[in-house]
Design a protein around this nucleic acid. Structure first.
Lengths: 211, 211
DNA sequence: TCACAACCTGACCATACGGTCAACAAGTTT
DNA sequence: AAACTTGTTGACCGTATGGTCAGGTTGTGA
């Protein structure tokens, strides 16, 4: 729109183009799945010729891999909110908030992640086996410690974690169903707050913490 | 294997072939998604030539439609377990059990359903808007009545339902992740019981019912 | 300013896919 | 057993897809 005094450097262009492509790819992969997505569709959505995609990303699979990796980084970030707490109310409460916020802000990414896992994780199997497995073990022992210290009711740490993942992720993966049941409208800000509060309330009470 | 005295009638053959195809299709659609699935793959899995699939089901989409419809029927059946109860403990407890059992027995179907909704429900949008919406409304008022009668804590009926769907469905849709975190092994019978009990425990306590 | 490297893309290619069909086989009805 | 309906499938077709590449453009360092 405006004539920039300085033309963009190559590095800047590269970075910007890659971002545009990755964002378009994320949306298309989320909506159509890996098999249903086409390079042409992604190119159109990015406003670039198809050949350009192949200049920045050699293959469709390489592009997909980058998209998935991006989500995992975001996921890891949220995972951190668990650690800084010294009690279940703050720890799990903050984790719920963080993951709900991800579902809200990164719907497409979440869907890509879900589809990847559903299809037996062809790309991220190693992440599941290493990073995710370690994180899960760690958090399970934190929860177990809280239980031993009497800070929460004795519930299965593993299934509590699964429940947190499932519930928070649901708002992204099934957003279409949720919107349909909301009269075809996306959740408003107030409704998102309501959802967060409801999840927090049920889960925290569920692990023995009075509201 | 055994030589049948009476050769199968056409109707029997038709029914049997259709079932074989539908089961193969469910598996392939679950593993590869609609876009990633190919008629050839389904044919191979069903042990039939590709042209035979097109004899029984005119198009890939028609086949997919039938697979999805099949899941919805199963889902509706489980939905019934909610109705016969006159209190939240039995009603919600039974519903959790029923849906967990679906996740266990119909993993592939659940995945197909999840993928369908994730991709904006191209095939089942009308179901979501009619049958599912009505069922949801009905169950929400049942829950609200329970709350009004003091039978459970005042929680958002809508988000409670979402939580039930999310949590129970998770064990099917993310079964691969769960297996990976279980040392690569599928859940044993005992582990399934554990999972069911844990979900029931957290949810029921979460809505104010002491274990 | 010049040589070079990075960037860009229209045109092209091989392949794989969903779907069709002709020809035949197997039941079913009369 | 003849006439007819239903089932069966190998071979084929048009198309769309992922990917390539030659040839041109544009920024960059000497």
């Amino acid at each position: 729109m405006e004539d920039s005094a300085r033309p963009l450097t190559k590095k800047e262009i590269r970075r910007a183009r890659e971002r545009v492509i990755l964002e378009a790819a994320e949306k298309v992969f989320a909506e159509a799945g890996f098999g249903g997505a086409t390079m042409q569709l992604i190119a159109d959505m990015a406003g670039l010729p198809k050949a350009s995609l192949h200049y920045y990303f050699p293959t469709k699979e390489a592009l997909y891999r980058r998209v998935v990796q991006r989500i995992f980084d975001i996921w890891l970030e949220a995972a951190g909110s668990f650690d800084e707490a010294d009690g279940p109310a703050e720890g799990i409460g903050a984790y719920i908030d963080a993951k709900m916020e991800i579902s809200r802000r990164h719907r497409d990414g979440s869907k890509v992640w879900a589809a990847e896992v559903m299809h037996r994780a062809p790309v991220i199997q190693d992440y599941l086996e290493t990073t995710l497995a370690e994180w899960t073990e760690g958090r399970m022992s934190v929860i177990q410690r809280w239980i031993d210290e009497g800070k929460m009711a004795p519930v299965s740490p593993r299934h509590l974690l699964y429940m947190l993942w499932a519930t928070t992720q649901h708002y992204a993966d099934f957003s279409h169903q949720i919107e349909t049941l909301n009269g075809g409208e996306p959740l408003s800000d107030a409704q998102w707050d309501e959802a967060k509060a409801a999840v927090r309330q049920i889960v925290l009470r569920g692990i023995g913490l009075a509201p």
